[in-house]
């Protein structure tokens, strides 16, 4: 069986300016933050970022790497509005594609099932169709009902973070919600999985059952070991959200100097290990 273990730097090196990136997790929950931080250590820019948005989207916007955000919301959960994303939108610093959050599911289903679109009622009658003039409706050939044809959400590269994975890319999600990480992987040309711990295949079920193995190796291009790789978002049951660090991050949206200080301390560092050390120093 193939060994797909790569470094986080190797994984993000596949990105090119202008690519479309899908990011797993939800809000400020099990976000593949080690990948996001690694993107900031590359010069890549003009990304289209597709996400049930949290600090992944906020940080990439604050760092000026986003040309277009595709989102239904951006939240830090315990802080309802993602403040960096909010700034970016209010300054019209990013192009925006705002959908209903269920339309993301429809778009990922279409992409993962190799269909051009998925029909849904979500969006009908709302301003989703006004603010997204490229969205089309489709008439049911059976009933004539006019439904929204959500286009397949195909992405160039997807990043997700799981609790355990083997070197081949089989992933165990131990938290109560698997979110849509398998669909992100299938919707992508290349999918990278970071994991709290790489384990031998015969240890994948040590802390779960086969029902936890929502990611399988056919979906995965590369595996990265990234302990605390979802920090500061939650990664239950391994760790909860780092609320005090998240507050620090949120406060840095208040003015450019605070953001520069935050980025200088935590993001403009050599590697992921240096980030984790800086966090440990900060909370010591």
């Amino acid at each position: 069986m193939s060994d797909k273990v790569v470094s986080v730097e190797d994984a993000v090196a596949t990105l090119e300016d202008g690519m479309t990136v899908g990011i797993g997790g939800w809000g400020s929950r099990r976000k593949p933050m080690a990948f996001v931080r690694a993107i900031l250590r590359t010069p890549v820019k003009d990304l289209t970022v597709v996400s049930w948005g949290g600090p992944d989207l906020g940080i990439l916007c604050a760092a000026g790497r986003v040309r277009r955000a595709v989102y239904a919301f951006a939240t830090l959960d315990s802080i309802p509005l993602e403040p960096h994303f909010r700034r970016a939108r209010e300054a019209a610093a990013v192009e925006a594609t705002e959908w209903d959050e269920g339309m993301f599911y429809a778009g990922l289903l279409a992409a993962s099932l190799r269909l051009p679109f998925f029909p849904t009622r979500a969006g009908l009658g709302s301003d989703v169709l006004r603010i997204n003039p490229d969205l089309r409706t489709v008439a049911s050939p059976y009933t004539g009902e006019e439904l929204v044809a959500v286009p397949a959400l195909e992405v160039d590269v997807a990043f997700v973070h799981v609790h355990r994975a083997d070197p081949a890319g089989n992933g165990a999600v131990l938290g109560v919600d698997p979110y849509f990480d398998d669909l992100w992987c299938k919707a992508a040309r290349h999918a990278f999985v970071s994991t709290e711990r790489i384990v031998a295949t015969d240890h994948l079920l040590d802390e779960g059952t086969t029902r936890n193995l929502t990611i399988d190796r056919t979906m995965v291009t590369g595996v990265v070991e990234a302990p605390h790789g979802a920090h500061f978002t939650e990664c239950e049951p391994d760790y909860g959200r780092d609320e005090s660090f998240q507050r620090l991050y949120a406060a840095s949206a208040k003015d450019p100097d605070l953001w520069a200080e935050f980025a200088g301390t935590y993001l403009d560092v050599e590697d992921e290990a240096a980030y984790q050390e800086a966090v440990a120093r900060g909370s010591a």
Partner: peptide, 21 residues
């Protein structure tokens, strides 16, 4: 205006889908 909001709030969230379903 949605194109350049005075105040960005939650976004659409699930409201469009909820209300027609």
């Amino acid at each position: 205006p949605w194109e350049k909001p005075k105040a960005m709030l939650l976004g659409m969230r699930g409201a469009p889908g909820n209300t027609v379903n």
